[in-house]
Design a protein around this nucleic acid. Sequence first.
DNA 1: CTGCACTATGAATCGCTAA
DNA 2: GTTAGCGATTCATAGTGCA
Lengths: 285, 285
Amino acid sequence: MGRAALNGFMGDPAEAGAAIFLGDCTEVIARNIPAQYVNMIVTSPPYADQRSGNYGGIHPDRYVEWFLPKARAFKDCLAPDGSFVLNIKEKAVGGEKHPYVYDLVLALRREQDWRLVDEYCWHKRNCYPGKWPNRFRDSWERLYHFALSPKFKMRQEEVMVPMGDWREKRLASLSDTDMLRDESRHGNGFGKRVENWVGRDMAYPTNVLHMATECGHKGHPAAFPKALPEWFIRLFTDEGDTVLDPFAGSGTTLIAAIGLGRKAIGIDTQAEYCEAMRSAVRALS
Amino acid sequence: MGRAALNGFMGDPAEAGAAIFLGDCTEVIARNIPAQYVNMIVTSPPYADQRSGNYGGIHPDRYVEWFLPKARAFKDCLAPDGSFVLNIKEKAVGGEKHPYVYDLVLALRREQDWRLVDEYCWHKRNCYPGKWPNRFRDSWERLYHFALSPKFKMRQEEVMVPMGDWREKRLASLSDTDMLRDESRHGNGFGKRVENWVGRDMAYPTNVLHMATECGHKGHPAAFPKALPEWFIRLFTDEGDTVLDPFAGSGTTLIAAIGLGRKAIGIDTQAEYCEAMRSAVRALS
DNA sequence: CTGCACTATGAATCGCTAA
DNA sequence: GTTAGCGATTCATAGTGCA
């Protein structure tokens, strides 16, 4: 392979390009994953004080100190042009949104030099029902895109979306002015040039993602929908690259990665989840 | 009135319940607005380093120190059960999203005891075009809801929306332009007035708002769509209450407030904008 | 008053070049 | 070195005018 091998990778051929480790991700990464081995990290860590039945729950006030050593390990095993996508959302405590997510992001920037490239908004079309006197249902989550350098791998063409219907009417009959670059009232060089869009039916997406949550999950309590890691994996990796989910849970990220022809590494502290992941991955082949 | 009067309020009867002040909001509030006089503050301040042609531009690194004294004044003039809605979004600097918004929110919490109740997501359906190697178009902005106490005024029924499938069916039978005209006549895409939908199934909204920015703005560089302040004014005030916009700009908030039977106070540092607001408010009566 | 065509523009960002 | 200016790139919507 010409580079350091992953300890224990491909231990089970039936696992079709997936390695699954039981344990705390900080230690597993230190022991088993060579430096700069991973092309991308996508994960949805346990949120503060949530899922206490499964993970014991991290108190919001301690979340940052709990997370930082793990992020340090992520940095060690991530390739220089790799990306780290973090799905997280704060919860309400005492009628307020707790600021631990903000504290975490600022700490990652200032203490570990992660570059905060963008904050994607995942709009959950079918969010959890409920009613409270002081707030509405929380219908969106954050997906932070961190990188280690200004130039990271990004394949924008892989996630293009159909253009709006406006173009059909508009481009069917191009007016004279549409054929010219319109520089009017923009000193900044921006001018519409509708002509550019002839023959084009796809547009680049925005940083707002509309996806429904998957209901009826058995086993793991709070997985994101498979389409979510899929989208970022296509955007930030090539085929054959390696994707890591250090809080793999039910294994959604691994399934998505393998389905897209990437290699996958999953880590979880719970033996049941590791077992479930193994079964799910095996079922793919 | 049984409470302190606003200095200079109603100076011009033609202004129909609106007071417009020229100056820095910190000073205007101290001089002209009694303590706890205002029921709600909705505003979209100049973003860091933007609009240098109009407002001089505040450097991102200095934004927090620029904003905090103003927020202190807001606190002084806001009623104990009032709300403060802040529309803001960070910008990209050197390939990263600058963290000044996070710094500001944390400072408001920790230095001034503002309660961060929720962060609404405004999804801008028609965001600015553009293509860059490292990011997609930014299609959402933040709307922070701050309060001074756990029990604030909130009228959730006023912003209920018709439930999905019925609304789509009805609008599908109208032509596209019909629908557009219908929506714009009623001012927003949310709900129009609840009375119009009696007998229909209504649902509470979520904290994600889908609204297009208004095109064809002249004069002021960055007004949010009128439907945005309208929505929050209906949610957090009653008729006859007083709404303050300390960075009033083109006066969108005032127009929205007056149209909903609220009193309005606008402050801006630019004489032109104050004049434009006066004209716009006069045109309402 | 409706339907259709056409126009204008909105809180943008990166990278290069010149000073 | 550092900064300021300008070109290039890009969609979706509201508004206006006209038949």
